[in-house]
């Protein structure tokens, strides 16, 4: 188990390194471009060269990469070009808002999809299963920006009960979180419900469930003790693994509702060319994705005795 843990750890560190190198290659291999971005479009060639010299950009590429990576790790993420403020406190504040959004969405999605998926898988083919399945396929077919449009039309423009933007102008407000969370849960839960259902239905037809039933166990006990654990392994690990899909959805929703969060910040930085915010933000998002992969792998091994005691 420890062995597996270390191997996975090694693998994600490796992936993280490769990605950081690729990112550095994308962002900073063209030195003049960097200087241009920092100094503005109207700076002269001469100014740019001086800036490069002064900021150590004439060192060998690999050395610059090591330096950059070191700075990132210790938290020195540079200054925003757009707002002229240090990146770190700004980014962390945005990240906090997004963590609230993401956390809510993840837990609600988990709750809905596991409960609905299990029920529908246990009663495969019955009316409840069919209703859940149809509901799930309907909601997964409405992408975030479409459901946001529909929900905004109803709750913002027609009923007028919810705000259409989540800019937190007067500080954090729960009311402004409702629509973004709703949009993301609606779009995401269907997919995981369907997966949980498939997994549960498969386990329910397995031979060991038959063994348990023919041992004379109560149906509820068969489902809870014998089927559930085996059925949840796959959906749970995939759900954790796909945290980065959630992050993508978060970006869209934050843009739509002008939610003051990490995703909107990343999007703005990408469009503006705010180099240092973009660098830090992509690194953070990749770190989250890689870490969730690690959690998912280790979780899978923990849940599955065949791997734990392989």
């Amino acid at each position: 188990m420890l062995k597996l843990f270390l191997r996975r750890l090694l693998s994600i560190v490796l992936i993280g390194l490769v990605i950081s190198f690729v990112l550095f290659l994308i962002f900073e291999s063209d030195k003049l471009d960097v200087a241009g971005k920092v100094l503005g479009a109207y700076s002269t060639q001469e100014q740019r060269l001086i800036w490069l010299e002064r900021n150590g950009y004439n060192e060998p590429f690999l050395l610059r990469y090591a330096d950059w990576l070191g700075n990132f790790v210790v938290g020195d993420w540079g200054k925003s070009l757009q707002y002229d403020i240090p990146v770190r406190p700004y980014l962390l504040a945005q990240l906090k808002n997004t963590a609230i959004l993401g956390g809510l969405v993840f837990s609600l999605t988990l709750l809905f999809s596991l409960v609905l998926g299990v029920i529908s898988g246990v009663f495969e083919g019955r009316a409840i299963d069919r209703s859940v399945s149809i509901f799930a396929v309907l909601t997964t077919s409405v992408p975030e920006f479409a459901s946001a449009t529909l929900l905004a039309a109803v709750f913002v423009f027609w009923l007028g009960v919810l705000p259409g933007t989540s800019t937190f102008q007067n500080g954090f407000s729960w009311k402004e979180v409702v629509l973004p969370v709703a949009v993301l849960v609606i779009y995401n839960f269907g997919y995981y419900t369907r997966m949980t259902r498939a997994s549960m239905a498969e386990v329910m037809t397995s031979q060991y469930v038959r063994t348990a039933i023919l041992k004379g166990m109560r149906f509820r006990r068969v489902v809870l003790n014998h089927a559930l654990r085996n059925a949840l392994i796959a959906p749970f690990t995939v759900m954790v693994l796909q945290l980065n899909y959630l992050l993508s959805g978060v970006i869209v929703v934050e843009v739509f509702f002008a939610y003051k969060g990490f995703g909107k910040m990343l999007y703005d930085a990408a469009l503006f060319g705010d180099l240092y915010i973009l660098e830090a933000a992509t690194m953070i998002s990749v770190a989250i994705a890689v870490f969730s992969q690690f959690v998912s792998d280790v979780g899978y091994a923990l849940l599955n005795p065949r791997i734990r005691f392989g």
């Binding site: 060991y208 041992k215 849940l303």
Partner: peptide
């Protein structure tokens, strides 16, 4: 089931709960 009538199956591996 399991008390008065019990059954043994063809594929032992698949008939036991893996977890």
């Amino acid at each position: 089931r399991g008390k008065d009538i019990a059954m043994v199956y063809q594929e032992p591996m698949a008939s036991l709960n893996p977890s």
